[in-house]
Design a protein around this nucleic acid. Structure first.
Lengths: 209, 209
DNA sequence: ATAACAATGTTAATAAATTAACATAAAAAT
DNA sequence: ATTTTTATGTTAATTTATTAACATTGTTAT
């Protein structure tokens, strides 16, 4: 069930939820599709279509119940028991991610960081303990870590991915600028900041022409 | 010319180039479409189609000339004079980006960082000077900065975007988890790390079911 | 009451992106 | 020399994603 949601819909649901949580905090009980759309820079049709796909039905002329929709999106995208996450590489980017998540109520818990720098190993950062990369296999199994976020230097990308796979990781989010190879049973998402910047620069350039 | 390249093709060209630069360093002179494809986890057809779109033609049975292709991609996506870039928010993420780019030969130069923390203002980080956010308008104009990368805390996202727009920025890459509004003449690219992680977690979850 | 309005939900159409199919030709093998 | 192989380049088909069209219905206004 819900296995066939388009990738883009999954991404948007995550974003809708975040926007909705802010609305909830403000005490807003209902929201229209076009309000969600405006926040996300998309069309109201897109929003309604996504919500149709997850079978949520709002109230005519009142819009969607903020709380209900948050809960439904949670039922769809969160896993019931929660998922433990590790950060590979406690450099600037790794710490940035930890801070993003620190204190967030979330099914996703960053429970471990790994690094090779002895100064970092043994410390905790924003509540996340830093372990030696040598202990990766053991800690990942002990802590039942399912997802790894790779923020190591590019030269370590492949070796780190291999280690993660060996340790039985189920999903990898790779922020290094180097694509890595994993077996089919490991879900891999790669994001390249340099590419994003080059893309922005490209469109700035052609807008000038 | 080349204005109508698909967005996805632009992104891949950037990635091809990065892979090609590594090949060049290793002394490799030619490369096949399926080799590029393997690195990027896509199909060889995709690669050939992208190269067709930019009008590059390889040598039958020898593949593509690495150096020529790097140069052509540069001609397409780089702007001749180069583009100056600013980092808004010199926290962990901002510094991570600076380090990514430090020492890279690139048409894209990070020439300024901005922050509100007095301890940071006046210092340089990896060669990038940090200015007060109050001086944003002036510095952006003085240094002819065209692109801004937003790495400020979410609460500052909108205000920062507004400042950038007022200063005449042409493109924004927004790494805050909060979507911002900009006029049509400013190219906006948003990337949300939390969404990416939730997406990975989702696919890990459904692979288990 | 009735008409006009404003929102949802859904199907149909369009556009964007990917993949398949295949024609071509240089190189290698026979 | 001829055949086979192996790669490119391009058109066609398919799939995925977005947008348009419109039917429906509660609410408000007259």
């Amino acid at each position: 069930m819900m296995k066939n949601l388009p990738h883009k819909t999954i991404e948007r649901l995550s974003q809708y939820r975040r926007a909705l949580l802010i609305c909830l905090e403000k005490g807003q009980t209902h929201i229209y599709s076009h309000e969600i759309a405006k926040i996300q820079h998309i069309t109201a049709v897109q929003v309604r279509r996504d919500l149709m796909l997850i079978g949520y039905t709002g109230t005519l002329r009142k819009g969607y119940n903020v709380k209900d929709l948050i809960d439904l999106i949670g039922n769809i995208i969160d896993s019931t028991e929660g998922i433990n996450v590790a950060i590979l590489g406690m450099g600037n980017l790794g710490r940035a991610l930890i801070n993003y998540f620190a204190g967030k109520r979330s099914q996703l818990k960053i429970v471990a960081g790994f690094d090779i720098n002895p100064d970092k190993i043994g410390n905790t950062m924003s509540g996340v303990p830093c372990y030696s990369s040598e202990d990766m296999n053991r800690i990942i199994k002990e802590k039942n870590i399912k997802v790894g976020i790779m923020t190591v230097p590019a030269d370590f990308a492949n070796a780190t991915a291999d280690q993660l796979v060996k340790a039985g990781i189920r999903g990898i989010l790779n922020y290094t600028p180097k694509p890595v190879n994993v077996p089919d049973n490991v879900y891999l998402e790669e994001y390249d900041m340099i590419t994003s910047l080059e893309k922005v620069a490209f469109f700035v350039k052609i807008n000038d022409e």
